[in-house]
Design a protein around this nucleic acid. Structure first.
Lengths: 226, 226
DNA sequence: GCCGATCTTCACAAAATCTCGACACCCTCT
DNA sequence: AGAGGGTGTCGAGATTTTGTGAAGATCGGC
């Protein structure tokens, strides 16, 4: 069975990009739309196996989109809502959403929920959470562990996510902003030296050669040799 | 004889996911559908040995589904109902359902009833419930017992389920939410520190090294050494 | 209805982790 | 070489998450 396709309908481009990148990294095929009408279009055209849907959208809102796409054929929908009040509304209304998350949300949790929803349908098995090698390291997402030989190297949640994100595309440079939105999930006005600190922590734990600084741009994991 | 196949027809995805996960873990092959028409389809296609069927379904309801699949060939049906009144109705009508449960129900009970129904039909023996080792412990699902050497360690039902769930995939990290849905079965807005409490209880009874806390994520049973 | 076993929630302490600024050092450009 | 911003690093303080014991709520059996 080929890859599951996921439609992301979200107007805030930073979030859309981060979500899409993250899902692709996990092995899904992803299509993005940024307003209600084109979202509905997208679903008719691409026939996704799951839809990630923002409630607040230009054109018509997520609830309307949800109704329209469900009218054609059943497809699991994961809703993104801004405030808790909307959450209540959603749950109360019992629109066809199968699950929801409130922003800001952690990208990891999003993936977890997507996997859970797809698992239920089973027609499209979600891509496996397989462990991979990175130089002399083994990165094991299911166990959330990094090992060097027999030794387990303890990473904090953010450290693990950061490494996992960078390692997904060896050699590719990520800006601090990209990292903030992919690892932390987008949050208003925050940043400071946070990314740098965690990169520092990773270097301390994993060795200073793994992460390359690209002056003026951002960070990347070494592609060659690693 | 190979594994028994079970069709789960249920539109509330959280419940469907929990039920499916649980049954798979018990060794059944599981297929899921989320509305009436596709449920009937599924049954024709997959020819399950038993059907778990929600009464309330989009398309046409569970009773109708039940009639249609029974029309083709006899298959045991376990109905899920929301309220007690529906239960009465069901029983009164004597549709082809062989057993029923009202939500919320315990996943463990569901498995028990599934096994019972299959046993009754006899054709398909339910998968074995074999005891396995976990470090210096013996876990015996059939007796719902844990032993260390000769000593039987008494676990409460939830404690046993929790251990059993985690032990099914050693090393893999389960979030609290996953545990809630797999062990407890879905219930509206509840959770809090319940999982933590039971993990605490298990540690007290089985030793503090067995269950690993993964900060910010969840829990896992130690894979290595155990 | 009472009783014992179990489950859920709560509150507080303890840990673990995160954020962010300060300051020294480094890089790049001129 | 000097200027100017970017980066490495460290640590204090804030925040979040977890461990735990006890209280209250539930459930089932007698």
């Amino acid at each position: 069975m080929e890859l599951a396709t996921i439609a992301v309908i979200e107007d805030e481009s930073i979030i859309a990009a981060a979500v899409a990148a993250r899902l692709r990294r996990e092995g899904f095929r992803v299509e993005v739309a940024s307003d209600g009408p084109s979202g509905v279009d997208l679903c008719q055209r691409a026939r996704p196996d799951l839809v990630v849907l923002d409630v607040m959208l230009p054109g018509f809102d997520g609830l309307e989109v949800c109704r329209r796409i469900q009218r054609e054929r059943p497809v699991p929908v994961l809703m993104l809502t801004a405030r808790d009040s909307e959450t209540d509304m959603l749950v109360g209304l019992g629109i066809g959403a199968d699950d929801y998350m409130t922003k800001p949300f952690s990208p990891r949790e999003l993936v977890a929920r997507v996997r859970a929803l797809l698992r239920r349908v089973r027609k499209f098995p979600s891509p496996p959470d397989t462990t991979f090698r990175l130089g002399d390291l083994e990165v094991d997402p299911a166990r959330r562990q990094v090992r060097r030989g027999d030794e387990v190297i303890h990473l904090t949640p953010i450290e693990f996510e950061l490494l996992y994100t960078l390692a997904a595309r060896p050699g590719v440079v990520f800006t601090r902003e990209q990292l903030l939105s992919e690892v932390w999930g987008y949050r208003e006005g925050f940043g400071g030296r946070t990314v740098d600190s965690h990169v520092g922590a990773l270097r301390r734990k994993l060795g200073s050669d793994l992460l390359r600084t690209v002056h003026g741009v951002g960070y990347a994991v070494e592609a060659g040799g690693y």
